[in-house]
Design a binder for these strands. Structure first.
Lengths: 111, 111
DNA sequence: ATAAACCAGTTTGTAGTGTAAACCAGTCTA
DNA sequence: TAGACTGGTTTACACTACAAACTGGTTTAT
């Protein structure tokens, strides 16, 4: 195989090695996908939607918060604690970019 | 947030937690994307195309081979060793499936 | 009253993974 | 024949995801 075939391989394909790892993790991708459409969601709702264990979900949410992709609010609903999550601008923008990237990858290659 | 919004979230979105991890790793995804279009490629060609270090590339190729996604052939080109890689059916099928999955994810969500 | 079960998460331990750096066997060059 | 180069492989380590164990508090049952 020579470099003659190089023209086939679009630069975008190579660039996916630099993909946003924070979003590339499936668990977090699902979390963000859910938050992308519902805007706000509490812990249990997210857990049901994603199918993640509570521990997992908690860890991933913290990671997303630390990177300012989501905002976590802790309140009380009567006496029971409630954790509410929201995708903020940084996260929304990153998610859009990620989608664009993988869309290009998925569509661009010849069959 | 109640489950009223549940209808928005398509089942496919949730399913990406079960994505093919072997292909989901960006390095391997690029390797397979290259092999997908060129059919056969040697080690150095792959290294140039992917931008991976030799050690990395070697490790990922072994992982792909162990899972029967690619076939690795070792020959001599004169006196210099040559490692040639080829995406086999299992790998090609998996790659197609992976593309389908992420395409759905990328396209399906509302903006 | 008090024990048991439950709720809403967090923390901890472990196994797996990706990565770069170090290494190796053999070949070419001066 | 010493040194550099080829074409990789192996090693060491830092990071990550995941499940299981735990925490702090509340409700239910006895």
């Amino acid at each position: 195989m020579t470099d003659d075939a190089e023209h086939i391989i679009h630069a975008d394909v190579r660039e996916i090695v630099g993909v946003d790892r924070l979003l590339h993790e499936p668990s977090r991708l699902v979390i963000c996908a859910v938050l992308y459409v519902v805007k706000r969601a509490d812990f249990l709702y997210l857990q049901r939607q994603t199918g993640l264990t509570a521990g997992n979900l908690s860890a991933h949410l913290q990671k997303l918060e630390k990177n300012d992709y989501i905002k976590i609010e802790k309140t009380f609903d009567g006496k029971t604690p409630r954790t509410t999550c929201e995708l903020v601008d940084t996260g929304r923008t990153a998610f859009d970019a990620y989608r664009e990237n993988i869309k290009r990858l998925a569509i661009q290659l010849p069959n």
